[in-house]
Design a protein around this nucleic acid. Structure first.
Lengths: 225, 225
DNA sequence: CCATCAAGTAACTGTTTAGTTACCGACTTG
DNA sequence: CAAGTCGGTAACTAAACAGTTACTTGATGG
């Protein structure tokens, strides 16, 4: 298997790196398990996910999975944490405070919708976690502080809009965020039953674009003064 | 389903009565299994639900479950069908066309929110079914026709509102329904993760009432002309 | 150059699970 | 009342499952 034509270089001052460690690479194995687990949990939920399935997807075996992550539940929690870190990090990079209040809210709505669209596994993990009443999320120490920033930034934007008279005084940051997230989450996560019962393929680009515009419109219409 | 409410009365003048049939009552056993299955599937999803768990909740055993419903998957589909029939039946009884267009839409929004609030198992089943990409719902013959009525009625109300000049011309019946359902579904089905990450108990009556008003407000604000 | 330790494999274990079979007992009917 | 049917019970089976153990391989450093 090792037809790597490179010299077997040893004793370099640096850690054995990429090309050499095609066979043995703890970092990569670990990352592969995490990614495989994300897909397995997203596709099958906590009850339906199979440890063997994750190991196979990751191109390794159960022994490594238990070695790096303890057990199925701890692995699941890591997957969930990573998913939250992913969206909140990307969100922060938006800097919605740098624009006009209306543009800022519009940008947040657009970003959220597109992030949901590109990360169906995130929506799925949220659904699974809520089915279990946030049983694992509640145990997470890392995630609580991750979210105060979002509400804080959103709150600033709304305040500015209120002072400028473009937003109503009753506009609430949590309500605004929940509105944006609701409209994106439901449409995408329930697209399968909705498409079936209403006989319209919701994932078609035309409908997708119409709903994107709808989200921005509804969000702004609900707070405009 | 079987509208024969009482137990099967025979041509004999003396009917097998309550105390007699405490031991044997096919209708009740069947109904008990269906209700137990609804709870088990809602709480644990398809992958997490246990056939033994359903039998135990129903106060019977697996043999009866397989006798009446075939297997786990068919039982699940029956549960899902009944859940849809439940909401669509109650919805129909609203007769939103009997009021002014604005009141009609407002009533639909209120009804949907309150139904979701009182039937968390329905939301949970939807989530499970969508996790599996409507794999079982797609097989259902009964459910397709159930939903054309909703869109039809909603469409009439919107048309009337447009003619009266209270709704914008671009208002779309599916979008209106999706807006209402989105805002209710996300808030309730994701209440556990949301309450955790935002540190606010969303199920508290104060917040519940605020969100109810918000849904009606947002829905109408998005279509008012 | 060999002792050591970490990465990795694969077979195994005890338990849980969906689904089945053998049987029971009450009621109906010919 | 014999025979059959239907509602119901409980023990069983084969497969799947999460988690473990015994082992191999290969790099490193004394």
């Amino acid at each position: 298997m090792n037809d790597n034509g490179e010299n077997g270089q040893k004793k370099s001052s640096r850690r054995p790196s990429q090309e050499r460690t095609a066979q043995r690479d703890p970092e990569r194995t670990r990352a592969a398990i995490l990614e495989a687990a994300t897909r397995e949990f997203a596709e099958n939920g906590m009850g339906g996910a199979r440890v063997d399935g994750i190991a196979e997807r990751a191109g390794t075996n159960k022994r490594m999975l238990y070695h790096y992550f303890g057990d199925k539940e701890q692995l699941y929690l890591r997957v969930l944490e990573e998913a939250y870190v992913g969206i909140r990090t990307a969100e922060r990079a938006l800097h919605i405070g740098d624009r006009s209040p209306e543009e800022g809210i519009g940008e947040l709505a657009l970003f959220t919708w597109r992030y949901f669209l590109q990360h169906p596994e995130f929506l799925s993990l949220l659904g699974t976690e809520n089915l279990h009443r946030a049983r694992w999320l509640r145990q997470s120490v890392r995630l609580k502080e991750l979210h105060s920033h979002l509400i804080g930034e959103l709150s600033d934007v709304l305040e500015r809009g209120k002072k400028q008279g473009v937003f109503v005084e009753t506009a609430d940051p949590l309500h605004v965020y929940l509105t944006i997230a609701s409209l994106g989450y439901f449409y995408l996560s329930n697209q399968y039953t909705l498409s079936t019962i209403f006989g319209r393929d919701l994932i078609e680009p035309t409908h997708l674009n119409a709903w994107e515009r709808h989200i921005v419109h509804v969000t702004l219409a609900s707070i405009k003064g």
